[in-house]
Design a protein around this nucleic acid. Structure first.
Length: 936
RNA sequence: GCCCAGAUGGCGGAAUUGGUAGACGCGCUAGACUCAAAAUCUGGUUUUCGCAAGGGAGUGCAGGUUCGAUUCCUGUUCUGGGCACCA
């Protein structure tokens, strides 16, 4: 009987579907385990072989855990809102609902083809109104909440109102404006609009202003992605930064908690480090510098180096800083305007990256140094960002590289406060030595000076110690169509949630979801508003004569739906809650989350925020979403090139191309075998190639190759469906795992898959003979056979636990090689092998388990066997014996040998005696079970 | 520019805690079986010197710690990911 993988795989896929093998119940006496993949965005290109890498790893782990006796939740869904579908709609007129549906169907088919054990009954789609109803609902919970800094948690906004009525905002400082101060009386005297504006400054989901890329020619806001080299990707039109009204999530209130609780997560240090850097906690001081012209006005700076305050030679404001207009002198106005215009065209990335070219403009204004009373010039420059700290810095050229470059470029005199440590040509940025030229800080060690400086600043009433976070509030609106609409309406211009009393009074009760209206076209609305602004009958709600009621026309960003989807899988049909308490209390957080590092800060940080907020408000019992994180690497494309001789239709093989003037062209990897081009297939590829001619090298056309991103445009996309058709899903799964460590990126190399396929066929032959069929027999296994299977059980189990799937596959190969050479066809051995290979090659294992061994339930429910230690431990060891660290000979000794005895035997060895050259070894190093080294 | 990661034969990679570098697979190569091919099986395969026995070198590059370093430390180069509206 031959290994007919396509019949076998078809059969068992059907069996699993019919028997609901992958259905998971929320009620079980087994311990729970939650394995989750980052769900995909269903793009029009379909899955390529790179996508399933992480899915295969998590699938193996989920199956293994189930065999280990856990109730395993392993769901899948689709992150279905997003820019590409909308862009496609703009170009082709096809509605995103239609294209998304089509893409999902394709993805689903491709995923099924690989044999994943997803419980598809729990599938979620973020663009499904039944799903985004709850995305909107959670948004409303954030809108209706504020962050209590005393209790360190989110609380309902009604409790803040009660507090305001009682005592004003004394005990609830405003996160947006620390100057804001009112008492109970003032609160009560505020009108409706003022009250709501005040509350907006506290809400966790709030309205503010932010800069976006604005393209006048296209009349729309662009994503960073859509801006290439300072112009729009479509059409190459100029773009500028423009302030627009936006929604935000007040993630900054959670900065400290997001930072602290990283410690309890089982994520890679690198990943945690990236989040720490993103949060960017820094400790320093906020200091006020009074303006020379108007001492009542101040420029407020944040600095991590208050100890260098006597080295301040100038101030730098972000060009967008609110004071720039008012302080700029008339003589400098023109230059400042010109500079601001330049900065408008610069992305934040460019502004931060720029080191070669120093730019800036002098405002003509001065501040007074609070200690020396000297006049200090105020500049603006792009290297100071409006969103970071206070948007203004005190520049200390002798102690900061960028300040130093700036001072040199604009010929600003530099004050040296570091004595000999500063050499006049480069800033001194270390913290050794003592301060000089620094008034009361003179002769104080730099390491102590920060505290002394802060105390002096506080005593003089100039400022205070401050912790600053680089992280900014998360922009939460997009001027787009294909996203979740906001459950927000404007009543006479004031934003209200759709579940508030005022809204009900004016437009009747508003049930969630606020559905995305179907539209005819996707062009932007007026003034950079989203396409929804064009849908008048949707935007304008029935209003009484004296009131206007309109809907919010922004939509939510891509990460809205993905910030909480892992909760919905627990209880996907619930129409009363986002998920029941019973469900979330049972499944709790995700035990293993698998995905790429490209989500290091975006998605992973926002999910953590939503989880913490839902926890604070009492909806879930845990405050971190993902306990363990496994990052998978990317599979890159392995491109192939052909070389066309200039102005001809002749293609020359790679080795001979230097003899001609050639153009390098991508060629579809699917018509290249290894590096050899299928010239007939190439001719058939495109009409213009029909009469192509080839200059061969040794009878073959050899292509060039290179590693690039896998993408359609590079003709290097390999569809898993094609691989599965040729080799079967089991081979495909094992091969992807065999490629290398799961977290490392590597290029796809089709050649190697045959080795894995050969291995599976070899394994098959342990069970089936081509003529005789099933050849497994009842016979007691030998010691050697037991040793190999028990070592394999141990190694494979250990390797799965540490996500080292490539070495597990190697061990299977070693095991099958050995069993083959031992001619072993014994049931005890082979039954265990079928069970432990089931997570990797589920179809094959099921065939062996049920058809072969005659079991009547799935191999998924066969317990993963336990290994016996007596068969995994050797009792002797072939030691490498080294002289001065160089291995000279191998000698075998029992593991429990006495050291004296061993030394005697080693010294008596002829080879060793030769290398000792008659000298006495100074030292004999013997590490039990490892090695022996003689030091001469 | 800043942050994070990686670099080992012709190729993918192994070496789990500082202890025999190159497991396993691909490719290449020699052979067996075959009329032939496919499939399968057996041997060889880091490099260099040598007929061989045996020796030298070797884990991106330059140093360091150690009896011993792919592994730890310092510096450096290159490649990949992220940098707030791609998802």
């Amino acid at each position: 009987m031959e290994y007919a993988f396509s019949n076998i795989e078809k059969k068992w896929k059907q069996y699993w579907r019919e028997n609901h093998t992958y259905s998971v119940n929320n009620i079980s006496d087994k311990p729970k385990y939650y394995v989750l993949d980052m769900f995909p965005y269903p793009s029009g290109a379909g899955l390529h072989v790179g996508h399933p890498l992480g899915y295969i790893a998590s699938d193996i782990f989920a199956r293994y855990k189930r065999q280990k006796g856990f109730n395993v939740l392993h769901p899948m869904g689709f992150d279905a809102f997003g820019l590409p579908a909308e862009q496609y709609a703009l170009e082709t007129g096809q509605h995103p609902v239609v294209t998304t549906e089509k893409n999902i169907a394709r993805y689903r088919e491709q995923l099924d083809n690989i044999g994943f054990c997803y419980d598809w009954d729990r599938e979620v789609r973020t663009s499904d109104p039944g799903y985004y109803k709850w995305t909107q609902w959670i948004f409303l919970q954030l809108f209706h909440s504020w962050y209590d800094r005393k209790l360190n948690k989110a609380r309902p906004i009604e409790e803040l109102v009660i507090l305001f009525e009682k005592e004003g905002n004394n005990n609830a400082p405003c996160p947006e404006d620390d100057q804001l101060c009112f008492d109970s009386k003032q609160w009560k005297e505020m009108g409706e609009q003022a009250r709501r504006e005040t509350l907006m400054k506290y809400r966790l989901a709030y309205q503010g202003y932010a800069e976006v890329w604005w393209c006048e020619a296209l009349g729309t806001v662009l994503a960073n992605d859509e801006v290439v080299n300072g112009v729009s990707e479509r059409g190459g039109h100029p773009v500028i930064r423009k302030q627009m009204r936006q929604w935000f999530l007040r993630i900054t209130e959670y900065a400290e908690r997001l930072l602290q609780s990283l410690d309890k997560l089982d994520w890679s240090e690198a990943m945690k480090e990236m989040q720490r850097n993103w949060i960017g906690k820094s400790i320093g001081a906020e200091v006020k510098f009074p303006l020379a012209k108007d001492p009542d006005e101040h420029i407020k700076v944040f600095t991590t180096r208050p100890d260098t305050i006597f080295g301040v030679d100038f101030m730098v404001l972000a060009p967008e800083h609110e004071l720039v207009n008012s302080i700029t002198t008339s003589e400098q106005q023109e230059e400042v305007n010109r500079y601001k215009q330049y900065v408008q065209s610069r992305s934040e990335r460019e502004r931060m990256s720029e080191v070669k070219q120093v730019t800036g403009a002098f405002t003509g204004a001065y501040v007074i140094h609070p200690f020396t009373r000297k006049q200090i010039p105020v500049w603006i420059s792009e290297y100071v960002l409006a969103g970071y700290g206070t948007g203004a810095i005190m520049a200390v050229p002798s102690g900061d590289d960028r300040d130093h470059a700036f001072a040199q470029h604009f010929n600003i005199p530099i004050t040296n406060i570091f004595g000999n440590n500063y050499n006049g040509t480069a800033a001194y940025t270390e913290k050794q030595g003592t301060l000089e030229n620094s008034g009361f800080l003179n002769n104080i060690k730099l390491s102590d000076a920060i505290d002394v400086a802060i105390r002096a600043i506080v005593d003089a009433g100039l400022g205070h110690a401050k912790v600053n976070y680089k992280m900014r509030d998360a922009g939460f609106s997009r001027q787009r169509y294909w996203g979740e609409p906001f459950p927000i309406v404007y009543i006479n211009g004031i934003p209200y949630a759709t579940d508030e009393a005022e809204t009900e009074n004016h437009i009747g009760e508003q049930e969630l979801p606020v559905e995305l209206p179907l539209v005819e076209h996707y062009k932007p609305g007026p003034e950079g508003e989203g396409p929804l602004a064009n849908v008048e009958e949707w935007v304008n709600l029935s209003a009484q004569s004296n009131v206007t009621v309109t809907r919010e026309t922004n939509t939510m960003p891509g990460y809205a739906g993905s910030s909480w989807y892992f909760l919905r899988y627990m209880d996907p049909f619930n129409n009363e809650e986002f998920a029941s308490k019973e469900a979330t209390n049972y499944w709790k957080e995700v035990d293993l989350y698998v995905g790429g590092t490209e989500h290091a800060v975006g998605h992973l940080l926002y999910s953590r925020l939503w989880t913490k907020a839902l926890h604070d408000l009492g909806y879930i019992s845990f405050d971190e979403p993902f306990k363990k994180l496994l990052n998978q690497g990317m599979i890159q494309g392995n491109s192939r090139f052909v070389y066309r001789i200039q102005d001809t239709n002749t293609f020359v093989s790679k080795g001979l191309k230097d003899q001609y003037l050639t153009h390098e062209l991508h060629v579809d990897v699917n018509i290249v075998n290894g590096l050899e081009l299928d010239t007939e297939a190439f001719k058939a590829l495109r009409p213009e190639y029909n009469n192509a001619e080839f200059i061969l090298d040794g009878g073959k056309y050899i292509c060039g190759d290179g590693v690039e991103k896998m993408s359609k445009s590079k003709y290097n996309v390999v569809n898993p469906d094609d691989v599965v058709a040729q080799f079967g899903a089991d081979t495909f799964r094992m091969y992807e795992m065999f490629l290398g460590p799961i977290d490392v990126s590597k290029p796809w190399e089709q050649k190697g898959i045959e080795g894995v396929h050969r291995f599976i066929k070899k394994l098959w032959r342990l069970y089936f003979d081509e003529q005789k069929g099933w050849i497994v027999m009842e016979e007691a296994p030998t010691e050697a056979e037991l040793r190999i299977i028990h070592k394999t059980i141990k190694k494979v189990g250990d390797d799965i636990e540490r996500f080292s799937f490539n070495t597990a596959v190697s061990q299977f190969m070693i095991c099958v090689n050995e069993l083959s050479s031992l001619n072993c066809h014994k049931r005890t051995i082979l039954e265990a092998l079928a069970v432990i290979i089931a997570p990797f090659a589920p179809h094959l294992a099921e065939e062996l388990w049920q058809t072969g061994f005659g079991h009547t339930s799935s191999v998924l429910d066969a317990p993963f066997p336990a290994y016996k230690e007596q068969y995994t431990i050797d009792n002797s060891k072939k030691y490498p014996v080294a002289v001065n660290g160089k291995t000279r000979v191998e000698m075998e000794f029992p593991l429990d040998i006495d050291q004296k005895e061993l030394e005697k035997a080693v010294l008596a060895d002829a080879t060793i005696q030769k290398w000792l050259e008659g000298k006495e070894p100074k030292k004999i190093i013997y590490v039990k079970g490892k090695m022996i080294n003689l030091v001469v």
